[in-house]
């Protein structure tokens, strides 16, 4: 029989191991970016960042168009967020509150999009976007990403609306609200934390997306950070610590922003998924 103190120690160890597993690769990206070229290929690896190398982060902005990439990624992510939220709220309400003939179809259609690989839809989307003159544009990327984000966040928002008591909406109806008034004036404020979560999820999807950004946009100055960074994979002419520095600049905002929003994201995500 183990004592509870021993058990406690084992648990602490296990938690630390788990956190180490989760955080190490990101830490390693940072350390690599802060390792002088001379030490990168040394016989024993450098495990702590060399703070003297901090200037690398200023340097890469001169040598690599990181600023443009990040700006494009931000535009795509922000556009995806706005459009997705606008599109998702009303169908989420309909899924939660109405029983109508198309309900099952809508629910299945939203779910089915989870099965479609982006890589499969790239070709037809390429021709559709060509017809709509949306190739090689930021709005084109926003539209493509939104198609994949909307279903996810619709389910999440629906989960939150499910937990609003019917009586509150009925009280609003007695007070003279139309259905639109209820959605805009009662439901949206009440699911605001979930909307925040949905916004974060949409933003990251847009920020992280690679396949469409790679295929639907060709011009250099519309490149997103994901495509820019991917161009380094397997390429040898750029020093590895510069590549990692770009990786850090691209990844860190996402992680920091996410840590702040984490509480809402988890709450929103689980509201939608756990009750299922």
């Amino acid at each position: 029989m183990r004592t509870s103190r021993q058990l406690e120690h084992m648990r602490v160890l296990a938690v630390l191991l788990m956190l180490g597993f989760a955080a190490f690769p990101i830490y390693w990206m940072f350390v690599t970016s802060m390792t002088p070229s001379s030490e990168l290929f040394a016989s024993s690896p450098r495990l702590l960042p060399a703070w003297s190398q901090l200037s690398i982060y200023a340097e890469i902005f001169n040598t690599i168009p990181v600023a443009t990439w990040l700006k494009n990624s931000f535009l795509v992510a922000a556009g995806t967020t706005v459009l997705s939220i606008l599109l998702a709220v009303f169908p989420a309400y309909a899924l939660s509150r109405f029983r109508f003939a198309g309900l099952a179809v809508l629910g299945f259609a939203l779910f089915a999009t989870q099965m479609l690989p982006e890589a499969m839809l790239v070709v037809p989307l390429y021709s559709i976007f060509g017809d709509l003159n949306l190739l090689n544009t930021i709005p084109g990327l926003v539209l493509a990403n939104t198609a994949f984000v909307v279903p996810v966040i619709t389910w999440i928002i629906k989960g939150a609306i499910d937990s609003i008591p019917f009586e509150i909406e009925e009280a609003a109806r007695v007070d003279g609200c139309s259905r639109l008034d209820i959605v805009l004036g009662i439901v949206i404020p009440l699911v605001a934390p979930t909307l925040a979560a949905a916004a974060v999820i949409s933003f990251f999807h847009g920020w992280n997306e690679y396949v469409f950004a790679q295929t639907l946009v060709s011009s250099e100055n519309l490149r997103t950070a994901s495509v820019g960074l991917a161009s380094f994979v397997g390429e040898l002419s750029t020093p590895i610590h510069s590549v990692m520095a770009v990786g850090v600049i691209y990844t860190l905002p996402a992680i920091i922003f996410y840590l702040f929003a984490q509480r809402y994201v988890v709450a929103g995500m689980t509201a939608g998924s756990v009750k299922g």
Binding site: I26, M29, A230
Partner: peptide, 14 residues
């Protein structure tokens, strides 16, 4: 939750 927030491209790179 950190790994989940990291972009796939960066993950592939690192």
């Amino acid at each position: 939750t950190i790994p989940w927030a990291a972009p796939s491209v960066a993950v592939a790179l690192i």
